[in-house]
Design a protein around this nucleic acid. Structure first.
Lengths: 209, 209
DNA sequence: CCATGAAATGAGAGTAGCTGTCAAAACGTA
DNA sequence: TACGTTTTGACAGCTACTCTCATTTCATGG
């Protein structure tokens, strides 16, 4: 890869020109999409417009993203999550692990690009298709969670108990995101997550009934 | 249809001819859809085919159902659920209420037409679009659950805690349905629901960690 | 520096879900 | 039977998405 004459200046090429171009194209499409949605809204933004602004053909847009919703949503949190999960000490109480992992995931996910995270959750509230797609991706995350829980606790990842536990966790956190967005992103998201985990662990704060 | 006089024979018309026809049309569309899906699968079944077999125009199909997925899924469980929920004594412990209501909902929903329930859950597993739509409708159910919980416990239905609680419940039950379908509907669904509620109440059966 | 093979792109046609409009048909009622 | 309303069908149109094929762009070996 490196040599011939100087096709790869050794500075930091590592990836060939082709790879770099692909990454740039992918980002161009995403940025174009975000910009257009901010200007005209989700539904009013067509693939054709996105393609035009990103300076690619509509065909190419579909080569990079399977659906329109995916342009907005796709971003690989799962590997980060999994890595974070494995990094925790094995003897740590499970609820603490969840808390740590979620906080970390939120930090890297939300604070890294707050604007995008807000637009994304905003669209989740506004656009059913996006919300659906989000839920789909969460069920994938759920499967991964099952594996992690199973690995950690020595259970069967396909058992009803593990799956229900994972999915209720995911569902709860999903609702937390929606709550956050619906209330104009005013709350501290980390604090909301804490309250969520509290409910999931101990049920509704028992006052009556 | 029958005559100039006797337009409403007093037998059991109650609903005018128009209403009755609408119900019949709705059922015809649904039956046509189920039949075609069983024969050729979900994706290979087009609205045009459905319309043809149901002996209506494609326009009419869309007048009765907003989307293709809705033809398969729509069925109003929510009112039944809500009614069931309100019928329980106020001093009953909340988990017991949930158990009763879910059991009842399942009885009327699943056992009433087992075949349809199976096809439906089967499609949930197989067809992403159907699964998504199902999740959408569950989040609507979630909102209703919030209201019911709030009414019952005197909380704010829009509070984070109530919403998270409701959504985790829904998410867990959703996963239970998927589990049921994936395992070929072999388990007793009511028993699965019991195990699900157990997990949601007390977490994973605490062995280690 | 050029030739060859592989990968990415663009252009175009085509499918299907879904929306909206408008005139014709079916129904309810007096 | 006649009139007003509701329901329907036919049609045009939009857009997301798929598939195919020719063209361009990059990688590599001589």
């Amino acid at each position: 890869m490196t040599a011939a004459r100087t096709p790869t200046p050794a500075d930091r090429p590592r990836l060939g020109l082709r790879e770099r171009k692909k990454i740039k194209t992918r980002e161009a499409i995403r940025e174009a999409t975000y910009a257009l949605i901010k200007e005209h809204g989700y539904d009013a933004t067509t693939i054709e417009q996105i393609a035009e602004r990103a300076e690619v053909s509509p065909s190419t847009v579909f080569r990079y993203f399977p659906t329109k919703e995916d342009i907005v949503l796709t971003d690989e949190y799962d590997p980060v999550l999994l890595e974070e999960l494995r990094a925790r000490p094995t003897d740590e109480p499970w609820p603490d692990t969840v808390r740590h992992v979620m906080r970390e995931a939120i930090r890297t996910g939300v604070e890294e690009d707050a604007e995008v995270a807000r637009l994304r959750t905003h669209l989740m509230v506004q656009v059913p298709a996006v919300r659906s797609r989000m839920m789909e991706s969460m069920s994938v995350t759920g499967r991964m969670l099952c594996a992690a829980i199973a690995e950690r606790t020595g259970r069967d990842p396909d058992s009803l108990e593990v799956r229900v536990y994972a999915m209720s966790l995911i569902g709860g956190l999903m609702e937390t995101s929606l709550y956050w967005a619906e209330n104009g992103h005013r709350d501290d998201f980390a604090a909301l997550v804490d309250r969520t985990l509290e409910v999931l662990q101990h049920g509704l704060p028992q006052e009556e009934i």
